[in-house]
Design a protein around this nucleic acid. Structure first.
Lengths: 228, 228
DNA sequence: GGGGATTTTTAGTCTAAGCTAACATTCAAG
DNA sequence: CTTGAATGTTAGCTTAGACTAAAAATCCCC
């Protein structure tokens, strides 16, 4: 059974290699708040165990076995987050940290029972999909709000779960999964966005708009947004 | 914050020094399935941290701080056990092990929220009392069924939570906390007990009868039982 | 294509906690 | 009162994982 440090590395590599080809040592180090030297050491151990493929000076990628374990952890994490909100009354900004601790201690059975109580949900409180107990898993990719063309109506699908303060801010603006919205204007030079949320109008910063993932309702691809 | 090994030692010492004056090294080792040498090493570290008082070649006892931490762990453990049974549908024989893992990862807030959902319960599924979130805690001592005088009606208050097979056996006989019972006969030479449970009559072994704690309804003290 | 900046890796050290084997202590029995 | 069994402690080794500092590789710019 993998230690919880191993599980954390696998999760980090999983998340990082969704954006780039392979996860860079320094990126893993930053995510886990650990020194680069520690990461190099761990990558060797993970490669020895057949959980990652590590090309020195290039990066790490999960093997099939490593990915299976990472997805298992992500299922745990997201089921736990939803359970904490739905059953125990946590607010969505506080569940990430708690789930990060519990996910190492919870048995598969516990997680499956929680999922059953929740009615086999398929998204967590932040809109992230919950992998099934077994089988393949592919996360849908949505454009971020910063990439959404002005005038194109969209539905908020998902937000990043890591920054509690940002989550509280978003909840205050009703920027929750399922919210209808539309960018009215992208201010130039990476300026703020004017956004219609339900009936009201808000101005939000460019930076946070990158952590909000939306599904455009009409226009096919990302077009008029000013981010790449 | 104590590591989970430290927490396990404190719990073990707490439980062991309820029966004897101080917890013996070998008893701790057996309980935690660890070598005696490891226990000696840990006792030194615990004493350095002011969590136990260790008299070499004699035994260990918790300091006030150590006891506070141990009671905190016991609260977590028992709240978790009850939550697993009441909310997640576990049977009472399977919760001990799961709670033993989770108790190290759950935050105080999580445990308090679980207790709130459960209506601030005061006993766990096996009848063990649940310490309050803060404050002193003293466990009531009940005589075991093996000490109960024949003919004295009693109520089952508590059973040991550690052996899943024993718990399944007891549940099959309706030997659950709250059950009314009476010893009809103690067979001599540490033989089995004939017991009336509700309306039915059962014969149970002497050994398991020692792990069943009862509250006698009439007779004041343990008298006619054949155990000391 | 060479040189400095950045990124990675290696090497060596630390801590927690486990183990075994050897030594020390206590206890109980003669 | 001594001696052997049982119990406890010490010493030394192991593993996982973190750290720092130094060495190596890669990248990027001119």
């Amino acid at each position: 059974m993998p230690t919880s440090a191993v599980q954390d590395y696998l999760k980090a590599i999983y998340h990082l290699s969704r954006s780039r080809e392979a996860a860079a040592t320094s990126a893993i180090a930053e995510r886990l708040r650990v020194s680069a030297g520690s990461v190099s050491g761990m990558l060797r151990r993970l490669a020895d165990r057949g959980l990652v493929e590590h090309i020195p000076y290039y990066g790490a990628r999960l093997t099939e076995g490593g990915e299976r374990e990472a997805v298992r952890m992500i299922r745990r994490h997201r089921v736990l987050e939803l359970f904490l909100v739905e059953v125990l009354g946590y607010t969505w900004d506080r569940v990430h940290e708690e789930a990060d601790c519990l996910e190492h201690a919870a048995s598969d059975e516990l997680v499956d029972r929680m999922a059953a109580v929740l009615g086999e949900p398929d998204v967590d409180p932040h809109g992230a999909p919950i992998p099934a107990a077994a089988g393949a898993f592919e996360e849908e990719r949505y454009p971020s709000l910063s990439e959404l063309a002005a005038g194109c109506p969209a539905v908020l699908r998902r937000v990043s779960d890591e920054d509690p303060a940002a989550l509280r801010y978003l909840a205050g603006l009703n920027l929750l999964p399922g919210a209808q919205l539309e960018v009215l204007e992208h201010a130039p030079f990476n300026g703020p966005l004017r956004v219609r949320i339900g009936g009201t109008e808000q101005v939000i910063g460019r930076e946070i708009s990158r952590s909000i993932m939306v599904e455009p309702l009409e226009a096919p691809a990302a077009a008029g947004g000013s981010d790449a």
